[in-house]
């Protein structure tokens, strides 16, 4: 043992060895998200893109009601908390007054596709030049497990305790496909953050969307199909398997609309 050189922490913790880092665009506040939840990863890659593009002084975010209502505690950029469903209207107000700044919303499925459907569709239809991050985990997380507009057929929630019966509760709303029909919409893509490769693709999607916003191409939506271990009543690993086995077959990943000629 005596001939083995003992390494000090300072020798190991050097830039060249760094496998993981926290961007300066995230605050030091510990996140309140449940273990295994995809929000933390989605926050991080979005903020990595903001840091890499060097736009942290030129971007304003809007986080409405839902699990991510406290996003302003974590994202180290100017932020507004919005009423439930109204993020796209709030973002419109900001962007119309500051067309040269970047504006994004970060919304859940209940927020964007139920109570805020009108605000979302009309912002998209006006071609508001904003990025909408749409977190789809098929359930209401913050209020602890009620049925969402995106809950899968047959999926159990606290308000569909015998499984979602589409005959009486309606079908899951594929709002990304719906929005892609509108001429004001430049870019719609569906990604996930439950596997490393998908995290990379999500990051690329954010970068593309913000680049399109810079070029004034119109409304961009990045949907992230993700998990909710607590309210799905699964372990993090089980919930990631559910994303692969059940969510993604219903909500297939990939680009739904890309800007013409791009």
């Amino acid at each position: 043992m005596s001939d083995i050189e003992m390494l000090e922490m300072d020798d190991v913790c050097i830039k060249e060895n760094e496998m993981y880092y926290k961007p300066s665009t995230l605050t030091d506040t510990p996140m309140h998200y449940c273990p295994g939840c995809g929000h933390g990863t989605a926050h991080k890659v979005l903020m990595e893109v903001v840091e890499e593009m060097g736009i942290e002084n030129d971007i304003i975010g809007v986080a409405p009601v839902g699990c991510s209502v406290f996003a302003y505690h974590y994202m180290n950029v100017d932020m507004q908390q919005a009423a439930h469903g109204r993020a796209c209207a709030v973002a419109t107000g900001i962007k119309r007054c500051y067309p040269e700044r970047f504006v994004f919303t970060y919304q859940g499925d209940g927020d964007l596709a139920a109570i805020g459907t009108a605000e979302t569709i009309h912002a998209a239809n006006r071609g508001e030049n904003i990025l909408v991050v749409f977190i789809n985990n098929g359930i209401y997380g913050m209020t602890s497990g009620q049925m969402a507009p995106t809950t899968l057929p047959g999926m159990v929630s606290t308000t569909s305790p015998f499984g979602r019966d589409v005959a009486t509760m309606g079908h899951p709303l594929k709002i990304s496909e719906l929005l892609a029909q509108l001429p004001g919409v430049a870019y719609v893509t569906r990604q996930s953050v439950h596997e490393a490769n998908n995290v990379k693709r999500t990051k690329k999607a954010f970068a593309k969307a913000l680049e399109y916003q810079k070029r004034g191409l119109g409304f961009c939506l990045v949907e992230i199909v993700t998990n909710c271990p607590s309210n799905w009543k699964m372990t993090p690993l089980q919930s990631n398997k559910f994303v692969t086995d059940k969510m993604i077959p219903f909500y297939p990943l990939g680009d739904i609309k890309v800007p013409e000629g791009k």
């Binding site: 304003i60 809007v62 507004q80 919005a82 009423a83 109204r86 209207a89 709030v90 973002a91 419109t92 107000g93 900001i94 119309r96 007054c97 500051y98 009108a118 605000e119 009309h122």
Partner: peptide, 26 residues
């Protein structure tokens, strides 16, 4: 001055919130 016809009064007041929160006279 920015003038925008919103899709509803609900949206209009939230556009006001956004613009006012960004420091504008609205």
């Amino acid at each position: 001055m920015v003038v925008l016809q919103a899709e509803s009064e609900v949206a209009a007041i939230n556009m006001i919130y956004g613009a006012a929160g960004a420091g504008k006279r609205v």
